[in-house]
Design a protein around this nucleic acid. Structure first.
Lengths: 174, 174
DNA sequence: TTGTTTCCCATAAAGTCCCATGATATCCCA
DNA sequence: TGGGATATCATGGGACTTTATGGGAAACAA
């Protein structure tokens, strides 16, 4: 699971160290690499491992070849995505197009989001984090939102019913 | 898996370099070649490897010999498709008919779509990409579309239940 | 011949690998 | 529990390899 936020410098060759904790998550993947794409809904990159990109692929494939939503997502996600391999010290080289989309200058901020992570320009990220915390607090005052979120009451049941999920949790590399 | 978008010049001999990442996908194929055909629903080419063309073949075969749809697809896809071999530096030579169908002049844009890719004239592709990203952002604001897309909730369970899919992910050449 | 296609070599730019170094974190033992 | 030894991590720079692309020679067709 990708968690925590950390900043890393982007050098003259556009290289940036991927947080060690994230790399540990990817260690079991077929290739030692991450997938990244410029997100369509904001100036940031979304990324993850093999599972992350295959989820998008599965979602798109499920819609079928002639669905307009699927066609849009194909270009916006798969067409824009890049596979970036690590060098021997755990860095990736960010393509120019991705750097420009996210407006990264000097420092990049990695934000873990569970099964995926986001990369933002470090500059704005600090304030964004505070805003998100405030937004969360506000939403928790709305009973409807609280109800939608649930509150984790049923995870135990979920695990009990799903050998797959149970294995996944035991394996611990998710 | 074919992902990312890149532009490549088409020279006086109609040669064009296939992105290195795409060639890596095809390395396990029986012949080191791609299949391409002028797509019936727009001014672009659709292409892929052995698996890509065999999927079309299987779909058509399933319809049976006397199905009008099958007959149409046979001509429109298999009849129009070409197998193009790579030269020693990873280029293919685009036949005139394909260049004309896609309106390619000078530069061609390869767009990865997972199990297949598209080739567009680079001129229009740049704007198309921006439009698609905007369309995606807009669609994500419509709860109905979001619901249709799903959001990958079930891939993990899917993988857990399917040894075949799990192997596929591990093999990593999809 | 003339035009077309295929193969091979040359080159510049881009990307990747490898080693070095300083900083940080972790471990171990008194 | 403090402090030094060790391992891990982040980052810089140079050497090397791959990739993209241009051009020329050889094979083939009309």
């Amino acid at each position: 699971m990708f968690i925590s936020t950390s900043e890393h410098g982007v050098d003259a060759k556009n290289r940036v160290s991927v947080p060690a904790g994230y790399r540990a998550v990817l260690r079991n993947d077929p290739h030692d690499a991450i997938y990244l794409f410029p997100h369509f809904s904001g100036a940031y990159l979304e990324g993850g491992g093999e599972l992350f990109i295959q989820q998008y692929r599965a979602d798109i494939a499920r819609l079928g070849r002639y669905d307009p939503l699927g066609q849009v997502m194909e270009v916006a996600v798969l067409g824009a995505a890049r596979r970036l391999d690590f060098d021997s010290t755990g860095r990736i080289t960010l393509p120019k197009a991705l750097i420009e989309h996210a407006g990264i200058s000097g420092k990049a901020s990695f934000v873990g989001c569970g099964s995926r992570f986001e990369i933002w320009d470090a500059e704005g990220q600090a304030t964004r984090e505070v805003e998100m915390r405030q937004a969360a607090a506000k939403m928790m005052q709305d009973p409807e939102q609280v109800a939608r979120l649930g509150g984790g009451q049923d995870l135990a049941a979920l695990v009990g019913n799903s050998p797959a999920l149970s294995d996944l949790l035991k394996r611990g590399d998710t």
